[in-house]
Amino acid sequence: MSNLNLNVNGTVHSVDVTDDTPLLWVLRDTLGLIGTKYGCGIGECGACTVLRNGVAVKSCRLPLKSVGTAKITTIEGLATSGKLTAVQQAWCKLDVAQCGYCQGGQILCATALLTATPKPTDQDIDEAMSGNFCRCATYTRVRQAIHAAAGSTPAISP
C-alpha cells in the first residue's frame, strides 16, 4: 500500500491504494469519477482515456505511482464553471453519441488533438483517433464534430 498525492481536475487528492492499482480504478472506485470508463483493461479500446498534462493517455494500465505530480484531467474536469468546451458543444450539437460509453474518451482524445493541431485534416483525425474505437461506430459524426470544433467547415447532413 502506498499513500500518494494525485492531482485530478485541479484538486490534489491523497489516496491510499495497493501499488499496482491502475489510475482508472482509483478514479472510478476511490474518487468516484466514473466518467472514465472501463472497456478492456489492456489499452485497446480507449474508453479509459484521460489527459496527462494535456496529452491523451489510457488510464487502465497506468499504475498510480507512475502518475507522479502530473496534472490529470478527466471528462468531468473538461468544462470549467459549467461551460462546455467547443469540443463538448460540437458533440452535443451534432448529436454524436449513441450509447455514449466511449465518448468521454473520444472527446478527451479530440481535445488533445485540437490542442496540438488546431486545424486537423481527415488524415490527422484518423491517426489521432485510432486508439479510441466506438462500438456504435459513430465515426461519421465524430469526424464532423472535430472539424466543427476546429472551426473548419463540417460536412453536416442537411
Partner: peptide, 15 residues
C-alpha cells in the same frame, strides 16, 4: 439531439 447528450459529454453517472 439526444436528451442525455450534455450528461454524456461531461461524464455524469448514467450506466
Amino acid at each position: 439531439p439526444g436528451v442525455d447528450n450534455e450528461k454524456i459529454v461531461t461524464g455524469q453517472a448514467l450506466y
